[in-house]
Amino acid sequence: MQQRDPYEILGVAPTAPAEEIQKAYRKLAKKLHPDLNPGNAEAEEKFKEIASAYGLVGDAEKRKKFDNGEIDAGGAERPPHSYYKDYASSERDHPYADNSGFADFMDSEDGFAELLRRSARAQANRRGHDLEFRLPIEFIDSIAGANKRLTLPDGGTLDVTIPPGIVEGQVLRLRGKGAPGSGKGGFGDALIEVEIKPDRFFTREGDDIHLELPVTLTEAVLGGRIKVPTPTGAVTMAVPKGSNTGTVLRLRGKGAPRHAGGHGDQLVKLKVILPKEPDPELEAFVSGWENGKTYNPREEVAT
């Protein structure tokens, strides 16, 4: 986008001394500052333009660079920020609120005063704000559910019941646990966004839970019953004879609760692990095991 010339925006000559530029800027800013013109979007747009122009040529160093063509007119754009007016008119209860500018209107006996009073009564009985919090929980608690106590910034606490099967980013609404309202307005709600910490062992995909589980050579070759952890407690699982690294076994109904009822599955991926220390007996057996020498698992891998 073609940037307008900052001198032109401020209405000064490119040769103008610094004092003149400041004077020109002040004159425009007094007219256009967004907080002196709440409700005037056009003034805000114009102010942004003059503020960024002044940010450039009102700064001796940047002005020099701009005049030498080292930076262009976009070189001093200010990051957008919110103004006082963005809070002062929209928020109801803040320490700067001042209704004295029209108090006399309220006291008269006409229909307009009645309207004003009605509006003041409505304001007097307004519901409190909703308050937002984040709650990090363990993966296991996200599957099995849990009761958590959240400590609030003001030192209070909030008891939160985590329903089983909650997912990352889900928001729990605690009715009436937000900010107090005024008059008969009642409390707002507390909105709690749940953040699930990653688990060392379990991961979740949809309603299924994945786990990689080490097994011994004996368990893999001969099969057997082993204990498997799940987020809701350990269960016994049959490892079939001749299992291998990469074999996936399914524990039905041991996954996350489903929306429509029932549960997903837990998928257990086996990983055969040899003893940490070299075992002479195992070495002796494998040396005498003829099939082990002829079987080539790399047959399909191009070498």
Binding site: A29, P38, Y96, A97, S100, Q123
Partner: peptide, 29 residues
């Protein structure tokens, strides 16, 4: 930026806050 002195700041804040009070009441009306 605007070169307002301390006395002026107080006056402006007072008027701006009254203006916001009226704007809010207008919205509620």
């Amino acid at each position: 930026d605007l070169g307002v002195n301390d006395e002026g700041v107080g006056v402006i804040l007072n008027l701006v806050d009254q203006l916001h009070g009226m704007r809010r009441t207008l919205m509620e009306l």
